[in-house]
């Protein structure tokens, strides 16, 4: 009896203390309510099942590389090759650094699309597409690296491969169209369940890339802030809609901003003396850090 009451009292005291601290620090969440994180977590299960399917198919990275080479040759012949973007060498230089120790056995290559809409894509076989609109809203090399890292994450963690596996299988065994149909069918049925999970994994990969290459981790959050400002999308803070949250392809930007800001803060708490590179000038001059290191960009803040 006494033990129970003491335990109950302990709960009440800890709970009260906890509440006191929360009130004192005015702890608020980015959105008032959202189902997106829950769907993201639940998507891990279906994503695992999806991966199992990829693992049991008689396919390897070499098959993916072959497909990637096809893409690359197509993009090299494309309209953008007539007037090469000044960003292309810069981005390729960055991506080479990022993928020095990658698991996939192919060379990454970045292509710049002359589109104003800010966006970036990853394709199987190490192909990354970046729009000029996106490059224009980013303000530092660290932000570019975070986005590149995100796209590399999609490829390295097999998201791109998973989306074309039946097509590859069909190509290998003579049924390309059938494979294409199978991929699209499966994607349309299951993608909503784990697309946020994939994006979250890619975000995580991008963030780890920043840390691994000594870039400022806070810049990832800033990249999302810039993206949000350019999109001018409305805040969903006071709005709850499970259906919308389920069909969202990406986690809400508000959450991504806050999450990576907090993770960066936590990293800084643990590493107060470790400088991190921002690279504003590098982006302006389109010179990667490996070629033009500016000490003033290596900051402790």
């Amino acid at each position: 009896m006494m033990k129970r009451l003491i335990l109950c009292g302990v709960f009440l005291v800890i709970g009260g203390l906890f509440i006191f601290l929360l009130i004192r620090e005015d702890a608020q969440t980015p959105l008032q309510r959202t189902f997106a994180p829950l769907f993201e977590q639940l998507g891990k299960t279906t994503k695992t099942a999806d991966r199992m399917l990829s693992r049991v198919l008689p396919l390897s990275d070499i098959d993916e590389k072959t497909l990637g080479d096809t893409f690359k040759s197509r993009f090299r012949r494309g309209p953008q090759s007539d007037k090469p973007s000044p960003y292309t060498p810069y981005l390729n230089s960055l991506v080479r650094e990022l993928t020095e120790n990658s698991q996939k056995p192919f060379t990454y290559e970045v292509f710049v699309l002359g589109t104003k809409h800010p966006n970036a894509f990853a394709l199987p076989g190490g192909v990354i597409l970046f729009t000029t609109g996106f490059l224009e809203i980013l303000t530092s090399e660290a932000q570019v690296v975070s986005i590149l890292g995100h796209e590399v994450g999609h490829i390295e963690r097999g998201h791109c491969f998973d989306s074309v596996r039946f097509q590859l299988l069909g190509k290998k065994f003579g049924g390309k169209t059938l494979g294409w149909i199978a991929d699209h069918l499966l994607q349309s049925l299951t993608r909503s369940t784990f697309s946020k999970t994939q994006e979250s994994e890619a975000d995580d990969y991008g963030y780890q890339s920043l840390l691994a290459h000594k870039y400022c981790p806070r810049e990832m959050s800033e990249a999302f802030v810039n993206l949000k400002n350019s999109l001018r999308n409305q805040s969903y803070r006071n709005d709850v809609n499970p259906f919308r949250d389920y069909f969202l392809s990406h986690p809400p930007l508000e959450l991504r901003i806050e999450n990576f800001r907090e993770r960066a803060n936590r990293w800084r708490e643990r590493n107060p003396d470790e400088p991190a590179y921002v690279g504003t000038k590098n982006l302006q001059e389109k010179k990667p850090r490996s070629k033009a290191f500016y000490p003033e960009e290596n900051i402790l803040e």
Binding site: P30, R33, L38, E258, E262
Partner: peptide
């Protein structure tokens, strides 16, 4: 927890 707490990475100063 699922709709509010889960979204945040916020930490207390202590």
């Amino acid at each position: 927890h699922f709709t509010v707490h889960l979204q945040s990475e916020l930490a207390l100063a202590v």
